[in-house]
Amino acid sequence: MMRKMMHSLQIKLVLSFVALIIVITGGTFLLTLGQTRTALLEATRENLTQIIGMVSTQITPADINVMSGFKAGDETSDSYLSMLKKLRNMRALSPNITNLYVMRLVDEKITFVVDDVEDDPAAIGQVYEEPEAKLFDAVNGPAVSNNLYTDEWGTFLSGYAPLKDTAGNTALIIGADMEAAKVAERLDFIGNTIYIIMGLAILLAAVIIGIFSVTIIRDIKKLNKTADEISKGNTNVSVNVNRKDEIGELAESFGRMVTSLKIMMAEDEK
């Protein structure tokens, strides 16, 4: 039974078409997913550049002047708390941003000035160990991580912008983090959407191919049955296949042969 099924033209047709669809859609998936992920990461980076650019314009020269004066132990001062509140208010306006912080570059070392993290914030003067190279680019203008970056606080996509004093010199650097989970969520959304579209395409194609092959096989079976009947001596049969394609032409030729056979057999009987 199983052996007969595997030799069935219908099974072969459906399997080969489904295999073809899987190969085509799989190839397309692999090609487009990579491209789409890159494009999405690029769009997220651009989004982060705009956010950090906008945030940096909200910090006034007076704020920069105040923050430049912060030293270790000032975390409870009114001016520090006021700056912290300002950062947190700005962060609240950008739901995709997880942390906002201000840093200072001294002797090739990055130290924290204000960190708006609520759990275990960096203290004033705390050195940022192993910062990513992009952070140093922010001295000249807004910069965003090329990819997700992991430090002691977690894995983030980060954006940085210079905070310039009244003389136009970079006094501080402001940073914004977008949590990896949020970036991954966006990337996964694309991946999942492509999976769903692919699944639906395969399902739809399989149904169409199934219907298509069923009608072809049905008519081939009719021809097969007629030939079988004639081969067993029963000429009282007709070819009942109405198609306009190659199968229809085959049925028409077959019908003519059957008719001729009937004529000749009738002649012989007489």
Binding site: R256, V258, T259, S260, M264, E267
Partner: peptide, 11 residues
């Protein structure tokens, strides 16, 4: 012949 095939002549 299109209707009856090779036995048309006989028919």
């Amino acid at each position: 012949i299109d209707y009856l095939g090779p036995a048309t002549g006989r028919f």
